[in-house]
Every structure is written in C-alpha cells, then in structure tokens.
C-alpha cells in the first residue's frame, strides 16, 4: 500500500495542497468548494487518497484535472449524500401542524427542495402533501448539484434495508396511514408510486454559483449549509431570501440556523427548535 505523506510535521503542506486542489476544480469544472468546511474537505480528500492508493493531494489533483470520470467520483466524496425518509420526525410534524395550514390558503404554490440528494426527503414531503390534499395544488422543484443522486431521486427506487426505520419515522412524524401504502416491494427494493413524483421536477442546481428561483412559497434545505463556511452560508441564505415570496417559509436542518447570519432580521422564527422561519414582509 502507498504511504500517505502527511503527518504532524507538514500539516501546512496538506492545507496548501488542498487549497490548490479546490482552486483547480473550480477552474476546470466550475464546482466551487473553496468555501466549504475545511475539516470536512480534508477528511474526504484523505479518504480518497487511501481508496485510490495515492500518496499526495498533488497526485490526486493531477488525476482530477485530467480525468472527468475520476472527478465525478471525487464529487461524490465531497457531496455527502447521506439522507433518510422523515429524518427528524418532529420537523415533519411541525411542518404538518404549522406550515400546511398556511399553504392551504394558496390556490397554487411552489416548493423548492434544495440539496435533495437521493430524494428520500422529497418523497417524504410528497406523502405529507398528498395526505393533506395539497399535492395537486403545488409544483415541487427538487435540486442538487450532483447529477448521480438526482437520477436516483427521479427513479424513486430504494433499498429495503432502511425501511423499518423509515416506517417508524413516518409514524412519529404524524403520518396518517402506513408508509407501505405508498410503495411497492420488488426484489429487496421499494418503488414509490409515480403519483407522488408526477409533480416533482428534478433539476441540477448549484447553490454556490447558480441563480435564484422565482416566487417560491416554501424552501427546504436541510443539512446542506452545515458544510459551508460562515460567509458562504450567509450568501446562500440570501439566495433563499431572494427566492421566497413575502411571508414565504424557509426550513433548515435541526443543527442549522439563521441566527448570526446577515439575514437574521429578515426572517421571523415559526419553530425555533425545528428551524422553520418566515420571510418578513417588505
């Protein structure tokens, strides 16, 4: 096995090489990881060195720059795609109790689900909307900057091994039926009813470099901002602010917050614990 050439005596070297790699990726492919959490990036880079049997980040950079396929693989390393259905059941409960009544007042509304990964959260949301009789009244845009996860999301086919956990989450979230009412089992996989995804447009969108969505009523972006440094996080919250209609709703992950962000005063909290905010009017 190749020896990795980093230890306590050259921590700075590693940091410099990683910075150069992020710059290189930006110049070559347009993906901008320069303001992502450095500790997270370092972990993923070191992991990739081990997997690909490389001894330095400079070597990794050489391969990333020359080989698009290899870059795509590395993109998967950097974009943590771990997700689950009805993750944080209390969040969905709060959504059902506090936000659904607001959405009901619209004849038609738009939802932007940013950083949707492989789609488990999107199907969770679609089930909730269906149970509340609102699925036909809305348009859902589910976006991520990783095309591979988007295609999984589009298919709506998942491994069966997590399903018990999902069923539990669904029940805890205040689900009205059984999760199994919404999917069919086939050969160890589950396939969600097409009816749920009919209304969903899955699209490639990069929160760091792409533009706003117009006149959205509800944005969900959970467990994406934790990977961003403070300034980038502020910019993206700004992007959400611009995209929302007045009184539009922003939902973040349970460990994310608009507290101390530049836009803190442009939102009011609806559920502080579940990180649900409303855009102030004007």
């Amino acid at each position: 096995m190749t020896q990795i050439n980093y230890n306590s005596s050259n921590v700075d070297l590693l940091n410099i090489e990683i910075q150069l790699l992020m710059e290189a990726i930006f110049l070559r492919y347009g993906y901008d990881f320069r303001n992502y959490s450095k500790a997270h990036i370092k972990r993923r880079v070191l992991h990739r060195l081990v997997l690909s049997n490389l001894s330095s980040v400079t070597q990794l950079q050489d391969m990333v720059l020359r080989d698009r396929g290899f870059f795509n693989e590395f993109l998967d390393d950097l974009s943590i795609n771990v997700t689950e259905m009805f993750r944080d059941p209390e969040f969905y409960k709060s959504l059902r109790e506090n936000i659904i009544p607001k959405l009901r007042t619209y004849a038609y509304f738009k939802i932007w689900h940013a950083g949707c990964s492989t789609g488990e959260e999107v199907y969770s949301l679609a089930i909730l909307l269906k149970e509340e009789g609102l699925l036909d009244r809305c348009q859902v845009y589910a976006t991520d900057f990783n095309r591979k996860v988007l295609s999984t999301a589009k298919e709506g086919v998942y491994q069966k091994n997590e399903i018990e956990q999902y069923e539990r989450n669904y029940q805890l979230s205040g689900g009205l039926h059984k999760l199994s009412d919404y999917y069919k089992s086939r050969y160890g996989s589950i396939i969600f009813d097409k009816e749920l995804s009919n209304k969903i447009v899955f699209a490639d969108h990069n929160l760091v470099i792409d533009k706003v969505f117009a006149d959205v009523n509800l944005i969900l972006c959970r467990n994406v901002l934790i990977y961003f440094e403070k300034n980038l996080q502020d910019n993206v919250i700004g992007l959400f602010y611009e995209s929302l209609v007045p009184s539009g709703i922003l939902c973040l992950g349970t460990k994310e917050s608009i507290k101390f962000s530049r836009h803190e005063n442009f939102f009011e909290a609806i559920d502080t614990k579940q990180k649900i905010y409303k855009k102030k009017i004007g």
């Binding site: 940091n15 959490s37 450095k38 500790a39 997270h40 972990r43 943590i80 467990n223």
Partner: peptide, 11 residues
C-alpha cells in the same frame, strides 16, 4: 476547524 471552531457533518 483550524480556526478553532466546530463543524458538523451527517457523513
């Protein structure tokens, strides 16, 4: 983080 702050991941 190297500026002595925390970060979280769902890895």
């Amino acid at each position: 983080e190297s500026d002595f702050t925390f970060s979280l991941t769902t890895d």
